[in-house]
Amino acid sequence: MRPILLQGHTRSLTQIKYNYEGDLLFSVAKDQVVNVWYSHNGERLGTYHGHVGAIWTVDVNSTSSILLTGSADNSAKLWEVRTGKCLHTWEFKTAVKRVAFSEDDSMALVVTENRMGYPGTVTVFSVKNDIDAEQSDEPTMIINQEGSKAMVAAWGYLNKYIITGHENGEISQYDWKTGEKIKSIHPHTDVISDLQMSEDRTYFITSSKDKSAQIFESNTLNPLKKYATDAPLNSASITPIQDFVILGGGQEAMEVTLTKLRHGKFECRFWHKILEEEVGRVKGHFGPINTIAVHPNGKGFSSGGEDGYVRVHHFDEDYFKFKYPEL
């Protein structure tokens, strides 16, 4: 395959996201601009200007009408996808590390940083999906984090829970209606860098700096699978069609100059989801991979790196023919 190289950012990528149909790819980076691309040919559709700090996170609703971003300028913004117009801004006391729309788009969660005496929170807002509607500034629920701060969060299926991944490697399950912690486990020994839901949200994958990625059941937080690699991981994603997971990461950016390129382990690793074996690798980035997203139809994936590039891959024919002999 020949990857498409997207050079729309001047600083390292923080998150990329496909929309529901997979025809649009949103990318955010530390350079304060949101880009949207056509995923099939890498053409840039537009940019969203307004943030004045590094943008950490992005999410789009399922009809691809409203975009939600969170930034280090202590705000989360709602945008009209089609025109790039900012629809609403929510202000916070600290930086926003993660945003996510609920499964039915009616709500959004915002994870804020624990900084300057303010505790880290997971704040839930209700969102009106009409672009002309007035958005409410009043949060539905604020879940205060005691102990280790939350780094990532996602909605469980049918908006039942919010699942958070913490700095110390903990994973917690919250009832967002009451703000209570239902369950908590401690499977990772280091920062949880990413948490992505499966298509039906019944299970999710976490990646951690402790060099492993794990799959858990959303309901019970039972660990299902574990993928142990040899490099700190920044992102993990589950692929449709083939039973794979894609893991990305690599040596910390600050340590890159100390070693040779090929020792940096800056490759997307493909692991068999069920057998927990590595099946292949895709190289290309010059720095650690910060974020991975899989096309919803499973025919491609994209990765964003510390090197400022997004690489869009469309799988070759033989990827779909690949079969494990024992399955």
Binding site: R2, I4, L6, G42, G280, V282, D318
Partner: peptide, 13 residues
């Protein structure tokens, strides 16, 4: 902003 990179192979084994 957009360029095509050289051919790479994902060898699944």
């Amino acid at each position: 902003t957009t360029s095509i990179d050289q051919q790479i192979f994902l060898k699944l084994s």
